[in-house]
Each structure stands twice: as structure tokens, then as C-alpha cells.
């Protein structure tokens, strides 16, 4: 806990909707140790975005914190005033968004945007510009001084995402949240982005919360992985443990679905049968029970506990640690 830059304990976020209370996150536990890269995986609608919004405290107006707390760098995030929170965003916590085409302001030059975000720093314009140039050099933009005068549309998608990374890391944050930063890019550009992120993380020493669908990228880049399902964190552990001996049946099913695992050509790819539960009417017991191949009586009535399997691996399952899920 002391080693964590970010620690989320028992957090629940509910949205009030016309249909009733939508329980988007329920009793979520996540820990992000200092200086580590943590991956987050889960289907669309599993609460990844709500999780990010909660960390940067930009939740929708109809959201409310039903339980739990977030500790960031020793501070209780939900106890901070709006001014204090604003002081953290962009300096201690910064973000890289999914779509590099829409991250930048289209009518301002990249240079203007990169010096604007240094508004808090007491530096001359030359110093700010120099810093922007240095940062662009670090993410591998050729001829950075000249390119500062160009507008976002004059850059390719891969370059724009690298500029977004440069901007996010300019303030040397303690935590970088990267929300599917490579989804909109091609495979070869994905390699570039991941290499840059790895280098910069080693240089700055920040923690990264890396959200992705792509299990291969998580396996390559991250040390630990958080698996989410239907508003719950169902497993967290080191990438090696989780990928090689998943303790939650959902994790196991998700890994088996990755076509990268399947060497023989097939026209019938594995899937997880069934649908995500309706988050307004969540079934009693385990949320994954209706789709789980290992379901038994207790799953329908009792909510499983967040069980410690071994040092650094936890799972939310009645069977966790009792026997190998394999």
C-alpha cells in the first residue's frame, strides 16, 4: 500500500438513469505500484472508462460515489477540493486518449498547444519552447523545432499520438493513464508507440495505467494486469501469473478467445457465450455466474470475496485459490 502511487479500495460508482440505478463499478480494488506499468483489460462496457473518470475525478453529473476511496500519492482524491484536484490533473496525473485525431485543437499549432499547457511553470517563452522541442525529440519527431509551427492535420496519426504522449509526459507526472493509445493505429505504428512509452517510462519513472483490448500488447508492455468484467475487477496479478495460470474463469475464457493464441486456422473462433448482465438489474451472487463454465450453487446466491491467491495475485471467485481453475 505504501508502495502504491494509486490505490483504489472498495470503490463503487453508480449512475442514476431513468431506468434506475446503474451500478457501473462495484467494490473495485486496484493498486498501481510506483514506477510500474499496469494493464487493464475487459470488454466494452465493463467500466474501464468510468474507472478512468473516477481517477481524474471527471465523472458524469449523474454519477455518484457509493462506496470506497481512491488514494493517490497519499492523498484521498475524493476529499480534495476542486481547486486541489485541478492542480493534480495534467501535472501529477496525465492522460493519453484513444483517438489521436481528436486529441489536439485543430486551429492551434502544435507549438502553441505545447507551450500553453506549461502555463503553470514560471519560465520564459524560449524556455517553454525549448522544452517542447526536447520532448518532441524524445518521442522521435524529426526536425521538431520547425514542426512546432505546424497544425495537427499536418501530422500523421502515429505522430499525433506520439505528440499526445509528449504533451502528457511534459510535466513529468507520477501517473500516466493511457486509454487504448494504439487502438486507432496500425500494427507497425503500435510498435513505435509502445517502444516510446517504454523508454519514457524508464526515463521519468512514472507509473502507467495502460488500458487496452490487445492482450499481446499487455503481455509485452505491462508488469501487472487488472482484468475487469461487468463493473468489477475480477483479477489482478503479475502478467506472467495471470496469463499462465488465470484464477478467474473469465480471465481464462478471455485469454482463450484471443485469436493470437490459436495457431491452427479456424473459422470458428472461441467466444464467451452469453451477454454481459444488465448493470441496472445485476444478478445476485457472482456477476459472471450466468456465463461461467464452472458455476455451482453458491455462485448464484453469494458474492465472491476478493481472495488473495499469492503475493501480488488476487481474484474475485468462489473457486479462487481452492483449486486450479484449469
Amino acid at each position: 500500500m505504501e508502495n502504491d502511487i494509486l490505490n483504489i479500495r472498495d470503490m463503487s460508482i453508480h449512475y442514476s438513469t431513468p431506468r434506475g440505478t446503474l451500478k457501473a463499478l462495484r467494490h473495485v480494488n486496484v493498486s498501481v505500484p510506483k514506477g510500474k506499468i499496469i494493464g487493464v483489460v475487459g470488454e466494452s462496457g465493463c467500466g474501464k472508462s468510468t474507472l478512468i473518470s473516477a481517477i481524474i475525478r471527471l465523472l458524469a453529473p449523474n454519477a455518484n460515489l457509493a462506496s470506497g476511496a481512491i488514494t493517490f500519492d497519499g492523498k484521498d482524491l475524493f476529499g480534495l477540493s476542486e481547486d486541489e484536484m485541478r492542480g493534480l490533473r495534467g501535472t501529477d496525473i496525465s492522460m493519453v486518449f484513444q483517438d489521436p485525431m481528436q486529441t489536439h485543437n485543430p486551429v492551434l499549432t502544435i507549438g502553441r498547444q505545447m507551450t500553453d499547457i506549461q502555463y503553470r511553470d514560471d519560465m520564459t517563452m524560449e524556455q517553454k519552447t525549448k522544452r517542447a522541442v526536447d520532448m518532441l525529440t524524445q518521442v522521435g519527431i524529426p526536425d521538431p523545432a520547425a514542426r512546432l509551427n505546424q497544425f495537427p492535420h499536418e501530422f500523421s496519426g502515429g505522430m499525433r499520438q506520439r505528440i499526445a504522449i509528449a504533451m502528457a509526459l511534459m510535466a513529468r507526472p507520477k501517473l500516466l493513464i493511457a486509454d487504448e493509445p494504439t487502438t486507432a493505429l496500425d500494427a507497425t505504428l503500435e510498435v513505435q508507440i509502445i517502444k516510446r512509452l517504454e523508454e519514457l517510462q524508464a526515463d521519468i519513472g512514472c507509473s502507467i495505467l495502460f488500458i487496452s483490448h490487445h492482450l499481446g500488447v499487455i503481455a509485452e508492455l505491462c508488469e501487472e494486469v487488472v482484468v475487469m468484467y461487468a463493473g468489477e475487477v475480477v483479477e489482478q496479478g503479475s502478467v506472467r501469473e495471470v496469463f499462465h495460470s488465470p484464477q478467474h474463469p473469465y480471465t481464462k475464457a478471455l485469454l482463450e478467445c484471443d485469436p493470437g493464441h490459436i495457431k491452427e486456422k479456424t473459422r470458428n473462433l472461441p467466444t464467451i457465450p452469453g451477454e454481459i448482465p444488465d448493470l441496472v438489474n445485476i444478478p445476485a451472487g457472482c456477476a459472471f455466474a450466468p456465463r461461467c463454465p464452472r458455476v455451482f450453487d453458491a455462485c448464484h446466491t453469494q458474492r465472491p470475496e476478493w481472495t488473495r491467491i499469492k503475493e501480488g495475485q488476487h481474484a474475485l471467485c468462489h473457486l479462487a485459490g481452492k483449486e486450479a481453475v484449469q
Binding site: A187, T188, E190, V191, Q192, G216, V217, E220, R240, G260
Partner: peptide, 19 residues
Amino acid sequence: ANPEPDPDAQLARIELKGE
């Protein structure tokens, strides 16, 4: 550029230069 979902996989990635 198509990484395997296995943390122990030996990756022989080829990084293309430039844009």
C-alpha cells in the same frame, strides 16, 4: 508486429524507420 499474448514469448519485432 503481431505480439503473442504470452509474457514469455520471444519477440522479434521489426521497427520500421520513420513515417
